[in-house]
């Protein structure tokens, strides 16, 4: 059984221009898949369709073998959104945020696992970008999900924070068998860590091993060198 099955998926916001056209792919258990593509390629839209925030124009989406229209086991999915759009004076602490999605015992476990326990009483908005991403990852892990959907979890972070988060994701995939499906603009990071790369630009340009994706990525982003070194 596949964790994600997408078949001939179409979507349009205005009914005229398709954001996604005939997208098909399957993701197996424990796989780490990196989704890359230029701005406006439909990556975040694809996530919203997987989370049932949007309804497909055509085609099907299955999660854990079940059609998305009938899927109700959302605790099996952990999600890290791209933007929070939270008010600048939002006052909640890390502990308060974790308590919204996990009981005390589980919140403690997550805090220890992610090493965020020493700033658990601090306000979320006063933390660095990397620390905030760890909290969001912690919230996503609250229900011990089998599938993690992450929309740009390393965007805007310094290299240490990027490496730290990627290391945790790699560990969750390899050691705990969680399926990781991650959008990233950092092609080097995806090529280095993902088991598979999904190159998206309205439809799937490439889906497979990272090694085979380099030429497609170069073509997709209009670049000619440097991808292999992670510096496009």
């Amino acid at each position: 059984m596949y964790v994600i099955e997408v078949e001939d998926l179409y979507f349009s916001y205005d009914g005229k221009t398709n954001v996604l056209e005939g997208v098909s792919f399957k993701v197996g258990e424990g796989e780490f898949v990196g989704v890359v593509g230029p701005n406006g390629a439909g990556k975040t839209t694809l996530f919203k369709l997987l989370l049932s925030f949007l309804k497909p124009l055509r085609g099907s989406v299955k999660l854990f073998g079940k059609d998305i229209r009938h899927f109700r086991e959302w605790e099996r999915i952990g999600y890290v959104p791209q933007r929070l759009g939270v008010e600048q004076n939002f006052p909640a602490t890390v502990k308060e945020l974790l308590s919204l999605v996990a009981d005390r015992e589980r919140a403690k476990e997550i805090a220890e696992y992610l090493h965020i326990d020493f700033y658990i009483d601090q306000q979320f908005l006063k933390l660095s970008g990397g620390q905030q991403q760890l909290i969001l990852l912690g919230m996503a892990l609250a229900s011990n999900p089998q599938l993690l959907l992450l929309d740009e979890p390393t965007a805007g972070l310094d290299i240490h924070a990027q490496m730290h988060i990627t290391h945790i994701l790699r560990e969750l995939s390899s050691n705990e068998g969680k399926t990781v499906f991650m959008i990233s603009h950092d092609i080097g990071l995806v090529l280095k860590n993902a088991d598979k790369v999904l190159c998206l630009n309205r439809n799937v340009y490439y889906y497979g091993e990272p090694e085979g994706s380099v030429e497609v990525i170069e073509e997709l982003f209009g670049i000619s060198r440097g991808v292999r070194n992670g510096t496009p």
Partner: peptide, 18 residues
Amino acid sequence: YKRLVLLSFSEELAKLKG
């Protein structure tokens, strides 16, 4: 209370939590 705090934090996360 908890639903409203989560909703103030992220509508998407609140939606995912039912």
